[in-house]
């Protein structure tokens, strides 16, 4: 495989290049997924035959930021997991996103890897996606044709597949900040404490009204669905309930059922189904302020 490498200095330059090399270019930011995938392809003898342009966007200024204005949180695509995990805004407004970004890989990976890369790579196990899904985040994509905004849930076509056009660049992800009365939680099950790809994860965002009833609920599991999605049936099981074990239990069961319905029964289902339920339960209670760990 022949590789070309280009490092544009501006968004415009990058868009120009991408529109000219639509069929054989790939954007790299932190390269924490791309490099691993290329090495893996090489070692299994599945490397691409055709020449490929690597379009390194790390030199483009202005794509790394966390802004909070008018109730909207905007995160630049080039913002690293490390910066998000440490962002005062994120930790304050959506701590479960900080937790998710802190659970990515290792310090080295978090320092290089970006949220934009995490989204566009579209791994079913991506750590930032469950909280972003629970937040109903939206994405802004840009190209020479102009910008377009899409809902995160509409962005994915399947594992590692999205609707992004070859000449488009993800500019930012943004979402409405949840009510200050809300609670959230992200839990992840990996094979070890660090450098662990999620085997299962779940993000929960809840709001409880003055009467003590759950008024809003968003539940998004990770690593068990082909692409990020909220489990509305689970959310419905909670809404209107004063937090109680039975409601939490039935919400968690809905997540397990949905996983089996969407992903089918696999060798791992016997383990993953009850465990995703257990994880969801704990995440719901954690979002309600009851942390059992």
């Amino acid at each position: 495989m022949t590789l070309g490498f280009i490092r544009p200095e501006t968004v415009y330059e990058a868009m120009e290049f991408l529109s000219e090399h639509k069929d054989n270019s790939r954007i790299v930011a932190g390269a924490t997924d791309v490099m691993v995938q290329m090495r893996s392809a090489k070692s299994t003898g599945h490397a691409e035959e055709k020449p490929l342009w690597m379009v390194d966007i790390t030199n483009i200024p202005g794509l790394s930021y966390v802004n909070f204005e008018n109730g909207i949180v905007r995160i630049g695509a080039m913002t690293t997991h490390r910066d998000i995990a440490r962002s005062a805004v994120i930790r304050d407004v959506v701590p479960f996103l900080a937790d998710a970004c802190r659970s990515v890989g290792s310090p080295q990976i978090r320092t290089r890897g970006t949220i934009g890369g995490n989204i566009v790579n579209a791994s079913p196990a991506a750590d930032s996606l469950p909280p972003l899904t629970a937040l109903s985040a939206r994405l802004r994509l840009i190209s020479r044709k102009g910008p377009r905004d899409v809902a995160l849930e509409e962005f994915f076509k399947g594992p590692y597949r999205t609707i992004i056009e070859p000449d488009e660049i993800l500019e930012e992800v943004y979402f409405e900040a949840p009510e200050s009365s809300s609670g959230c939680a992200f839990l992840k099950l990996g094979r070890r404490e660090s450098l662990a790809i999620a085997r299962l994860s779940v993000a929960v965002l809840l709001d409880v009204d003055e009467s003590g009833k759950i008024s809003k609920a968003a539940i998004a599991p990770g690593a068990c669905l082909p692409m990020p999605a909220r489990i509305t049936s689970a959310e419905e099981a909670l809404i209107g309930e004063i937090p109680n074990e039975e409601a939490v239990h039935s919400a968690s069961l809905e997540v397990g059922e949905e996983m089996v319905r969407v992903s089918g029964v696999r060798w791992s289902t016997e383990y993953k189904k009850p465990v995703v339920c257990a994880l969801t339960k704990r995440a719901i209670w954690k979002a309600l302020g009851v942390d059992e760990d």
Partner: peptide, 14 residues
Amino acid sequence: TRNFSTYILPTSLD
């Protein structure tokens, strides 16, 4: 399991 992302060695945190 061709590299350390799938061959699970304990890390310092484990």
